[in-house]
Design a protein around this nucleic acid. Sequence first.
DNA 1: TCCTTTGTGATACGAACGTATCACTATGCT
DNA 2: AGCATAGTGATACGTTCGTATCACAAAGGA
Lengths: 200, 200
Amino acid sequence: MPRLADHDHRRRQITDAARRVVARGGLPAATFQSIAAEADLSVRLVQYYFGTKDDVLRATRQAVAADAALHIASAVSEAADADAADPREVIRAILLEVLPVDAARRDDSMVLNAFFFDEITGGASDAPSRDAAGAANYLETLVRDRIVLTGTDRRTAEIDARLIVAAASGLAQAMLADRELAPQAGELLDRLLDRMLTHR
Amino acid sequence: MPRLADHDHRRRQITDAARRVVARGGLPAATFQSIAAEADLSVRLVQYYFGTKDDVLRATRQAVAADAALHIASAVSEAADADAADPREVIRAILLEVLPVDAARRDDSMVLNAFFFDEITGGASDAPSRDAAGAANYLETLVRDRIVLTGTDRRTAEIDARLIVAAASGLAQAMLADRELAPQAGELLDRLLDRMLTHR
DNA sequence: TCCTTTGTGATACGAACGTATCACTATGCT
DNA sequence: AGCATAGTGATACGTTCGTATCACAAAGGA
């Protein structure tokens, strides 16, 4: 049993490269050539590890979705630690973690959006594959649960959570189009939560 | 001066076809072949009227942006007629006009989003061409002006308008992913405006 | 040492697509 | 009738890209 290679590491190397390529130029920019070049590997090796291009993109999409979920989950636990009980602060932390406020998050947003619109337009061939769309649902659940903690009834909390996540997602979109918006993200978020989380 | 053809009509025929193709399959689906087939014209004629593919897409993008602006403007004037003075009803009418609540609006949203993300990823080659991004700005201005009418100070109105438009844009995105959301659009919008347009 | 896994390189083929060219037809004003 | 405009069809060329194949090199544990 000679020369055991770290397949998982290799695969991650490749999907990470694909992720960067997509972040830079969208899904159309993702070709065998561009991905291999970005990973500084031979085109052949990419073929070698993933048979077809669809396989590469499928794996990349799943990796991105999983990373995003982890990212959010860690933001939740951090916020929960720091500010033990205030649901509003937790929600704020989650959303601030998701908005494209810096280069890294900007890349994440771009990639997620690229896959999302590919799914919408039916670009994803055989599998249903609602990975990117699922991320928004996950966010909604998190936010909804936090709103319920404030004493809001479940149905209202559901609607409000949907609106809050929609607003964040729309803000993210706007920030992708206009980088100058990044510094205002915190302020906008505060204002949004002021308006959405107030009992009356 | 023989056989005068209606060039504008022809061009619109073609850009309309392109619009439908993009609505169905995104920008990657827009090829000379698919556009010509959709317009029921020869591939050659499309080349004949617009030299290159970029020209076709440029014209389509501009047509779509212009249509959207007209669409919104007419919604504004209708709402202003019906409910002469209530800014909230005008805003509601505008946003309901923009959300993908039916097939036609769904197509519009798809196309706008397709071009928008193309612009973001730098797909638009030479020209800056912020047509799609400009639409959101236009919306923000409209909403902001209506909010100012309620007595809110300008700076606050700007922020609120940005948040409202962001929420609508995020909702639109969610509705594109999940058609079942369409019937709830009105309710969600009402709730959003309840929360965002209340003085305190 | 040898054999298996791991990885490379060249190369080829076909499909989709954008683009250009040429020759040809049809139409309808003047 | 004649001619400029409008439109067609075939065809061909070059790219880019995905995919498949073949032979070969390297490396390290048994």
